[in-house]
Simulated assay, not measured.
Amino acid sequence: MKLERFERLRKAQKAYHRRCKWVMKNGIYVIHSYDEKKPDDLSWWDDAGFILGDRRVMVWWQHPRFVYADALDEQARKEAGHSPVNGRLFDDGIPNHKPVGRSRKKIINYTVPPGTDEARQYYDRLGTIKQRLQKEGMDVAVKPRWQRECLSWATGVELVAPLEVRNETELENVTDLANRLLRGQTTLENEFPGYAYGREQWLQEQDKR
């Protein structure tokens, strides 16, 4: 049954590739502009696509520092305690998104009009905790990882790897790594032996953030 499903997805991927054309640059489907990027900027996440055989591959890449920063935010919310706005519907609230994973964004909180003293106190407390964690870091180790997913229109690759992407040339490093991982030509341990992003790396980069 699993093989039948895989075969259906494979055919769907080929059909989608025939119908919908990508505009490629040097063999890569480039989504974002790098005009405002500086050569020494820190990188956080990016998306890119390429063709493997006659099917599409979509790569959703994150730098380990992005995953680490997300862990800091999660810890801040945990320490801040129950939010007084949880479980309510805020028609006037503005959702704040964070790019992450395959969907590339998720709602992490809402900006709401001035409300109760309880709400203001909560967000003041949350902000104070976030500032402390941003300054001190915490003991979390983010290691390179990747996951393959078979979709109806492409092969999806979620990739966490310590690369820097500030231009299209550096973006090629992301797609090249994903390509070799899919082909079984390398592993993340071979590429980044013993690598882990943690408090030490976070604090070393404070001035650049």
Rank of each mutant, 00 (worst) to 15 (best):
M1Q: 13
L3Y: 13
L3H: 15
E4V: 13
E4F: 14
E7Y: 10
A12S: 15
K14Y: 10
Y16G: 11
R18L: 15
K21V: 12
V23H: 07
K25C: 03
G27Y: 07
G27W: 06
I28S: 03
H32N: 10
K37F: 03
P39L: 00
D40S: 09
D40T: 08
L42Y: 00
W44A: 08
D47C: 09
D47E: 14
A48T: 01
A48D: 02
G49Y: 05
F50R: 01
L52P: 07
R55P: 01
R55N: 09
R56G: 04
V57T: 06
M58T: 08
W60E: 15
W61I: 04
W61N: 03
Q62C: 05
H63P: 00
P64Q: 07
R65Q: 10
V67R: 04
V67I: 03
V67E: 03
Y68V: 01
A69T: 02
D73H: 14
E74P: 08
Q75G: 09
A76C: 05
A76D: 01
E79S: 08
G81T: 04
H82Y: 09
H82G: 12
S83W: 02
V85P: 05
V85H: 11
N86V: 14
L89S: 11
F90S: 07
F90D: 06
D91Q: 14
D92E: 15
G93I: 01
K98P: 02
P99D: 00
V100G: 01
R104N: 07
K105G: 02
K106D: 01
N109A: 14
T111C: 10
T111P: 00
V112I: 14
P114N: 05
P114T: 08
P114Q: 06
G115E: 06
G127P: 07
T128V: 14
K130M: 12
R132K: 10
R132D: 09
K135L: 07
E136I: 05
G137Y: 00
M138I: 13
A141K: 11
K143F: 01
W146D: 04
W146V: 07
R148G: 13
E149A: 13
E149L: 12
G156R: 00
G156L: 07
V157S: 03
L159K: 03
P162M: 04
P162L: 05
L163W: 00
V165T: 01
R166W: 01
N173E: 05
N173R: 14
T175H: 03
L177Q: 04
N179R: 13
R180V: 04
R180G: 06
R180E: 08
R183W: 03
R183T: 08
R183K: 13
G184D: 08
G184Y: 07
T186V: 09
T186Q: 04
N190R: 13
F192S: 02
P193S: 08
A196I: 02
Y197Q: 02
E200A: 15
Q201G: 11
Q201D: 14
L203S: 10
L203F: 01
Q204S: 14
E205F: 02
Q206L: 11
K208W: 06
